[in-house]
Design a protein around this nucleic acid. Structure first.
Lengths: 218, 218
DNA sequence: TATTTTTTTTAGATTTGTCTAAATATTTGT
DNA sequence: ACAAATATTTAGACAAATCTAAAAAAAATA
């Protein structure tokens, strides 16, 4: 069965929002998709009738199993294309998201599987997020953010939570990417900032907001 | 300025039809786009109002200079993706057209220019068609079809006119691709067929229809 | 609990691209 | 040149995805 780009966007968005909250609200969807609540209601009715979501008026929405599969498939495509854009075409990782938003809606199994093989069946995208396989399975890595990681020991940056281009710009400035080695030297209770060593450069300070969005493996 | 995939398809289609006929008719467009004449009329009015075509009621349609540029840009994207699908991902050349029909509508200059560089700024796609550069310029190669090419001398297959999957299937069967060396041994007036030698294989016969659609450089 | 505020839904309109059926223009054949 | 056939356009409708404004439900607050 085929789904429109718009349907796929709603499904993907519900999937991501479900990570934090059990049931997803109309307003949450409207603000992340940048549309009006009325439009969301319309689309939820449509997705409901296609049995891709369980939607209860005034209550909230959840993905069905079918909806979940579709979400994982779109996410798989998105992340494979991001990997391709960065590692094959040499894009800056701060710029790939927008292009991948278009590429992810092209549905051709042979295309995606060949792309996957060409990229070496990688399991992690350029932002450190796991890439689901054909069946929607993916590995989760045990990781903690810089404000929770043990001090005075090198940890390895494994993913970025807030992936806004503003955030990625700042990380570029710090020279932090996936794989960078970081050691937390001190934490300041006053504002939650942290003094860190990035690779072998001199010490710097990152704000609490940054520390809470950079995830590492120990 | 941005154009919808549908607009781009009409423009591309008018471009290709203009290759043979000065003015393009509503019915020709309808049958190649697989839509109804009434829909074509609607779209032509729209493209007219955007100054992408010159359209005269009951007469026909031509691309304006702006329209021409858009056509060449879409064709550039289409052919670059086809090259990518065949040469990077290993697709069979008979299967790439459909996927490229989707990829061609993604408009991101950095994407296309990086793709072009990655592919080595190739000037010819897997079907032997020239790939326009950023400015819409491309090289035309002097070529003739198998029914016009001089006999008893090897010529090199350089492009295929009819690119239907049926045609490409048949060429696969003959083991004919771009670059194949062919020598015409005899031509039969009765049905326009030709006896040919393909590379160093034993002699075979191709129909007039095939002979008229396989182009070669001498 | 009653009132206010916020959230969500409904009703009705709009745009894009398509369609069918009918009307009109053009071309063809005799 | 005139009738028949063909091509093209118009008129009106529809589905998808969105919007605004108003109504209804739920949540927050005094």
């Amino acid at each position: 069965m085929h789904h429109t780009p718009s349907e796929e966007n709603y499904i993907k968005c519900i999937y991501h929002l479900q990570y934090n909250t059990e049931k997803v609200s109309t307003n949450m969807l409207a603000s992340t998709i940048c549309t009006k609540p009325a439009s969301v209601t319309d689309m939820l009715k449509k997705l409901q009738s296609k049995k891709l979501v369980n939607y209860e008026k005034y209550y909230g929405v959840k993905l069905t199993d079918t909806g979940n599969k579709i979400a994982l498939d779109v996410i798989r495509k998105h992340r494979l294309w991001e990997y391709f854009l960065v590692n094959t075409l040499g894009f800056n990782w701060t710029k790939v998201h927008e292009v991948a938003e278009h590429l992810e809606h092209i549905s051709n199994k042979e295309l995606i599987n060949r792309l996957d093989d060409f990229l070496g069946n990688t399991s992690v995208d350029p932002h450190g997020d796991p890439i689901p396989d054909q069946k929607g399975k993916y590995k989760t890595i045990r990781q903690s953010c810089l404000s929770e990681v043990p001090m005075r020991q090198y940890v390895c940056v494994s993913s970025i939570k807030n992936q806004s281009s503003q955030m990625l710009d700042l990380l570029s400035h710090y020279n932090i990417t996936i794989g960078t080695k970081i050691k937390v030297i001190r934490r300041f209770e006053f504002d939650g900032s942290a003094e860190i060593k990035i690779n072998k450069s001199p010490l710097t300070i990152v704000s609490e907001l940054v520390a809470k969005n950079v995830y590492c493996t120990i």
